[in-house]
Write a protein that binds this DNA or RNA. Sequence first.
DNA 1: TGAATCTGACTGATCAACCAGTCAATTAAT
DNA 2: ATTAATTGACTGGTTGATCAGTCAGATTCA
Lengths: 223, 223
Amino acid sequence: MAVTKAKDSILDAAERLFAQFDYAGTSMRMIAEEAGVAQALIHYHCKTKDNLFELILERRSTMINRIRQERLKQCFDEAEGGIPTLEQVLDSFVRPAIESGRYSWGTYFSQILAKLANSVDDRSRDLVHKYYDPIAREYIEALKKVLPELPDSGVYWGYLIMTSAVVSSMPRTRRIKRLSEGILDDDSIEQMIERLIQFNASGLLGLSTLSEQNNGRLRTDVG
Amino acid sequence: MAVTKAKDSILDAAERLFAQFDYAGTSMRMIAEEAGVAQALIHYHCKTKDNLFELILERRSTMINRIRQERLKQCFDEAEGGIPTLEQVLDSFVRPAIESGRYSWGTYFSQILAKLANSVDDRSRDLVHKYYDPIAREYIEALKKVLPELPDSGVYWGYLIMTSAVVSSMPRTRRIKRLSEGILDDDSIEQMIERLIQFNASGLLGLSTLSEQNNGRLRTDVG
DNA sequence: TGAATCTGACTGATCAACCAGTCAATTAAT
DNA sequence: ATTAATTGACTGGTTGATCAGTCAGATTCA
């Protein structure tokens, strides 16, 4: 009984509402009603609204990033020669995010995360720093090993552009359906994961300033 | 006297505050104080808070997308053979966004846009639809011409992943400085534009399921 | 000319509704 | 019996919006 049942339903309700109406647009009354508890109980369990937001972020980010960490380690452990392919590394990064984004809770959390990642205020930056820098450093180190020809600056920029693409692909905005006039949709998880890995793998390779000389060499990782 | 001076300062102030504190986190009183006018004047000029937000979006999106449209046309007009390179097309898309993102007003608008693009509620989707679908269709048609080997699904997915990367790169979150421990920073406009074009050009090419056979053929556009 | 009229820009005061957070009191669990 | 969980009532402050009214300047009428 590490966590109360009521506290969970408060976090669930707040997650839904924060995703839908933003932090400032969600009131403690709304959360209390959605969770079916008294408003004062939220303060009892979660102290302040600010802290409640961080609890939500902590719950999901640690969950997703633990899976990423495990799969990344698995990548290197099972790889022949100790170096996995770029696609394997990206799969361990993309899949936990996109798959969680399609679970019931993931559709809400992904919207919260996408907005947080694009915020420039100190509070948001500190939260991203706290919960996403450790996993970022692990992947940057992994990418350096998988792409030894890519200069450091390319690894950092590549990682950030990649994460932008992944994070922004998590919320189901249905924009692809509207743009393609119904031909395509964003509800096929496997299709989206495959596209993201393809796109980002090629994009990372393209960042190498030595791409002309190394096309053949690097392409073997992609192909 | 198409637009009042006071109305402009209201839009400017609201843009700053919406970027910093979100839509719901910004009050009409804050906007009035920031703009140096009476609160009621905002309602006189902009009717409702909701409408004020749309006015801000309209002002900047039409500005950026008009430049994109002009440069895209210029690409095709000046290209020998009528087909420009992929990099030229991407430059016409990326540059107006990133450059405006570093002007004084762009630093604010880019944060508003990034959050809007990642929202799934009907209101946000309608706004994106209204102000960004026309330019999206133009670039999708342009990409089809520049990348005739890429299947349609790849063009749509590629365009969306690319826009995610660009939009999320507009706000200066300074995350690259923190991650690289000061070695890199996101205040070099040219460097960032170059990286984004490199990454997205390679990513788009990578989406071709025929990439193995067409590497040489397609690579000429990149190289 | 000058007085009357109109108009768009602007304001302070005010509204009911809502806000996050507090606290004493009550209930449930151990 | 002690602790933990939960509640309703409450506080001081803020919310978006409205409304009657002020005021400068342009327009119209004499």
